[in-house]
Design a protein around this nucleic acid. Structure first.
Lengths: 266, 266
DNA sequence: TAGTGTGAACCTCTTCACAGCA
DNA sequence: TGCTGTGAAGAGGTTCACACTA
């Protein structure tokens, strides 16, 4: 997952497209683009929903926020919808982007084809290591951090990607913001502090794994398989109340499956 | 952002920790780990919330699902909380992980320190390119896809990371699942189809950028700055109704800021 | 007294179910 | 007839505000 808002209460009165819907538009767009390439002229909400991995009611509701772009009894015109969603997302214009921190991840991002194909243009790669400066990555010459401010203003960049180590992230962030950047995609495992008006989204690789681990852990104690157990109480798991209402004496001597309170390093 | 559930209606009756809370536990854990390293003995919900980038009421509510681990008038014991959250997330055990697709991104993931430090162990790197086989990446020798099933069963791996191109992802996914993997972190820009009981989480770099672009686009039309405009109607934006209730004749000749319905390539 | 733990209000998001239209 | 568009119901998540207690 990725988190990070920085907005008014979400569905702000400004325009009325719910955040949750905005987050799914790129998904629909990808599915539609694939259909478009196969020259499919129209799709039903059912088909498109399946391709995007959501249910059709949600998809229809989402589209209803954009306007009435479908045809009853028929479905949606693929090309037209691609255009409308692109426009809604602001992808009909060109977005120059800078990537700061050209380590493994930065390089991976620079090479990632998904950017260029969606209106994002990597305007510059920036790294603090003078040894990297001048070296080409993904066909773009890496520039030194000293140039950061100049690069941003010269190219009118408003979106920055931070792929530095955690320690450098806030500092880089501050410089990006001071230079005029108003949207940041942060890959460093830190909480960034930014002034109002600046958007931060966060992608954290290890957080995703931890969430998976949580669910994975649970699978052991449950019935052998099948997700169809809507209402059946799981066998092993103790009633939630028993956990929540445990005696107020802290430190149950070692958890249910307990052991040493092994603290992990950084 | 990353999406992808695959669960019962979220707050399933099974145990009672809301998904939204689970997703934040890693955040708290990181903040707590940092405090632990600085040998801070206790934190208040206020302080910890600030460090984790959430508000304190939410944090307290989240912790209340785990039990009563705080002390009124004092706060939370850092070490103890680190342990409790780790245990809740299943991080007190070792999770062997395989990474499939050792391109730029796969290599970045293999090198990512955040895994090893949280109970995740990269058990193997797998790639379809025979030329890569045997080559060390992040100190681990890359193995060929042919070995996939053997590696997984030999190491008891239950979590797989897919960092292949989109085209190969579903196929790799199918093999992983067949081999016994039950949790997948997918970096490929595709919707994966998996049987019930298998968890998929998705991280999509370009989707995050698209969401940023959406908000970035909006900033232009709004008042010069300041996020304090709770109720003031924004100047430029037309009332939502005017957009939603547009005449049913499709294709408004070219959008408000229109141009060619330029469709993007792959 | 300072700060947790939590019912209750509130808000957002999802799902249902069906009216309405091509 | 088939599928969209959408009110209304439902569920989940957030925030408030305060009782409670170390």
């Amino acid at each position: 997952m990725a988190t990070g808002r920085n907005h008014r209460p979400a569905t702000s009165r400004s325009r009325g497209i719910p955040e949750a819907t905005v987050a799914r538009l790129p998904l629909y767009l990808r599915a539609l683009t694939a259909l478009s390439e196969r020259s499919v002229p129209t799709v039903s909400s059912e088909e498109l929903a399946a391709a995007a991995g959501v249910n059709s009611a949600k998809l229809r509701k989402d589209f209803s926020y954009l306007g009435s772009y479908g045809t009853r009894g028929v479905g949606y015109d693929v090309e037209y919808l691609v255009y409308q969603i692109s426009r809604e997302l602001g992808l009909t214009q060109d977005w120059p982007v800078v990537i700061v921190g050209i380590g493994n991840l930065g390089a991976a991002l620079a090479n990632y084809g998904g950017f260029a194909s969606r209106g994002f243009r990597v305007a510059a790669l920036i790294d603090a290591d003078p040894g990297l400066a001048g070296r080409p990555v993904a066909g773009i010459s890496v520039q030194h951090t000293d140039e950061l401010e100049k690069i941003i203003s010269d190219n009118g960049v408003s979106i920055g990607v931070i792929a530095t180590p955690a320690g450098a992230a806030q500092q880089v962030c501050d410089r990006l913001v001071a230079a005029g950047i108003t949207s940041i995609l942060n890959f460093a495992p830190t909480v960034l502090t930014v002034p109002d008006g600046v958007d931060v989204r966060k992608v954290d690789l290890s957080i995703e794994l931890q969430i998976l681990a949580f669910h994975e852990q649970r699978k052991a104690g449950e019935e052998p398989h099948g997700e169809h157990d809507e209402d059946t109480a799981p066998p092993a798991a103790p009633p939630a109340a028993a956990v929540a209402k445990r005696p107020r004496s802290k430190r149950p001597e070692s958890g249910p499956d307990g052991d040493v309170p092994a603290v992990m390093p950084a």
